[in-house]
């Protein structure tokens, strides 16, 4: 087993700074779901990790803890995360505008 980043949706959706999406060295790995916070009444969406692409460097953890000061990201064993987003399940909006956000379909590892 190995460690991957796991983002707390509630903490993330409360602020939605999007710093982790900008600082991740891997492309198409930390994605942003605009609808993630809607169910819980948050104004914003939240970031999530496509775990099959995460190399476990924990740069996002440092950025979230020290730059954003939100402490929303933890490194966790991949088999202990309940719902994980996989790249093959990630779909994008129909419209080609950049304002359309990723729409993840989460599945079990």
């Amino acid at each position: 087993m190995y460690l991957v980043a796991n983002i707390d949706t509630e903490i993330c959706a409360a602020t939605s700074c999007k710093l982790c999406t900008q600082y991740c060295p891997e492309a198409n790995t930390i994605l942003y779901d605009n609808a993630a916070g809607e169910d819980k009444g948050f104004k914003y969406g939240a970031a999530y990790v496509a775990v099959d692409r995460c190399k476990g460097c924990a740069q996002c953890v440092w950025v979230c803890d020290n730059m954003a000061k939100h402490n929303a990201i933890k490194m966790e064993m991949i088999d202990q995360i309940g719902n994980t987003a996989l790249t093959e399940n990630v779909t994008y909006g129909e419209k080609t505008s950049s304002a359309v956000l990723a729409n993840p379909v989460r599945g079990q590892m």
Binding site: C24, P25, A27, N28
Partner: peptide, 26 residues
């Protein structure tokens, strides 16, 4: 500022975990 909401041009690559060069290239 919109990353995470669109598919990026860069794809999976074999560079080391946490490499700053990768981040810059991205």
């Amino acid at each position: 500022s919109q990353v995470g909401t669109f598919k990026e041009i860069l794809e999976e690559h074999p560079m080391c975990a946490g490499c700053a060069m990768t981040l810059f290239i991205r």
